[in-house]
Every structure is written in C-alpha cells, then in structure tokens.
C-alpha cells in the first residue's frame, strides 16, 4: 500500500489537493482510503466519504501534540486501510506545528503551502517543508508574478531537493504529476520511523505548570538573553 502524509498550515488547500488526487487515483482503478488527523474538529473525512464513496476515518489529538498523536496512531491507521482493501492511504495531518514534521521514512511526504501566505513563509516553517518530498503551492493566481517567483526561490533555499508543484486546486490542474509521483512511491510497511527529530517535549509546561517566566520552571529553561539558534533539519 502506498502511503501519503500531507502537512501544511491550516486553510492552504490540503483537502482540495487530496480530493483531486483521490479522484484521479480512483479513475485509475486504485482503491483509496483517507485518514484525517486533527486537534478538535474536522469534517473532511465525512465530505470525502460522501463525495467519493471511499473509506475514511479521523482521529482527534485533543490534549496531545497532533504530530505526537500521529506517531501513536499511524500504525493502526495503516492496518485499518489494509483491511479496507486500500492501495493508497492518504493521511491529512492537522498541520499546526512549525517545529515538527509528520513524515515517515516510508511513503511520500507532501506539504501544501499557499502563495498568499507571504514570501518568507518557506523560511519559517522548518522541517514541515525541509523534510517533505513534494511541496504543492496553491493560490498562485492571487499574488503577483514577483511574489510567486520569490516564494518558489525561498522554498528552494530551504529545501533544494523538494519537488515543487504549483497547482490550481479549483480546477485540479497540475495534480497529475503528483498522482504519478504517488504511484511511483514504494509501498509502505511497518515498522516505520519518523523522519525528523521531535522537539524536546518533556518540560514543566508540558506537564501543566503554566506560570509565565523561566524562573517558575526547571529542566529545559531559556531566558531572553540566552537564545539558542534552531536551524531545522
């Protein structure tokens, strides 16, 4: 089974891109399953089940970091999709964290970015972009040619090996090469590993100590004057 993990900030068009990809995969006779991971609300699974008649599921991460939650449940999700007879499992993540990335060593990592989010966005989102295989850029018609070109150059600064696809998510134009890439990806099998290193997560804030100011914490503390430069992966 092919595995596609899709990340990207909220509202960039992840669902639209996956919907077009799913439709084209179905046209080629590939059974598709869709798995949505979100924090507290999502209805994409219901939409796609209704529109495309494919098996879909979702999970809410709630108090857990969504990418952490993804690590926990992805194995189960793959078993579910296998049972459903899927040849391709499309996973849409919550796409919130700019420090982590949900991609695994098997399968295809796809980040969906919108050209309208500012020319410097690619420089800000770290491993969500730099560890992806494909960067899909949406809403290119809304910005000037100049910003579109600079946006792309910034992606290449951060992730020189990533394949960039500009798509029109409205008409689904530019999706075909993404579908070809999905089908060319080797099958994913457990055991799998997360591609990136997760951030340090065991801290006093994580365990519920909410006081503002480093003086109130211990373990991983940082003062304003003690900046540690995080370059990403």
């Amino acid at each position: 089974m092919k595995l596609v993990i899709c990340a990207g900030p909220a509202t960039t068009g992840k669902t639209s891109v996956l919907r077009h990809a799913a439709r084209k995969l179905l046209e080629q006779g590939k059974q598709v399953a869709f798995f949505k991971l979100d924090v507290q609300f999502a209805e994409e699974d219901e939409e796609l089940a209704r529109e495309l008649g494919i098996p879909t599921r979702k999970v809410y991460s709630g108090e857990l970091c969504p990418d952490h939650c993804g690590v926990m449940v992805l194995g189960d999700a793959m078993e579910w999709a296998e049972r459903e007879g899927a040849k391709v499992l499309l996973v849409e993540t919550a796409g919130l964290c700019l420090r982590c990335s949900p991609y695994v060593d098997h399968g295809l990592g796809v980040v969906v970015l919108e050209a309208t989010s500012g020319m410097n966005l690619p420089l800000k989102i770290g491993p969500m972009l730099s560890l992806a295989d494909v960067a899909v850029v949406t809403k290119v018609d809304r910005v000037s040619q100049a910003e579109r070109e600079v946006f792309r150059a910034r992606i290449m600064d951060v992730a020189p090996d990533v394949t960039i696809r500009e798509v029109n998510a409205l008409h689904g134009i530019g999706i075909d090469p993404l579908v070809d890439r999905i089908l060319a990806t080797p099958d994913a099998e457990l055991p799998m590993q997360l591609r990136g290193n997760p951030p340090v997560g065991t801290c006093t804030i994580c365990v519920g100590k909410k006081d503002i100011g480093w003086q109130a914490h211990f373990g991983v503390v940082r003062t304003l004057e003690n900046q540690v430069f995080y370059r990403g992966e």
Partner: peptide, 21 residues
C-alpha cells in the same frame, strides 16, 4: 513552464492580483 515560475513565459495580471508583501 509550469514547474519553474522563472521560466514561465506568461505574466497574468487579473483584477484580483495584488501584492501582499
């Protein structure tokens, strides 16, 4: 043409196109 905007031979200026920066 589609993959590399700096090789895209077309500039489109629509009524919606604007600068965001």
């Amino acid at each position: 043409y589609r993959d590399d905007p700096s090789r895209n031979p077309i500039a489109l200026i629509t009524q919606h196109t604007t600068f965001l920066s």
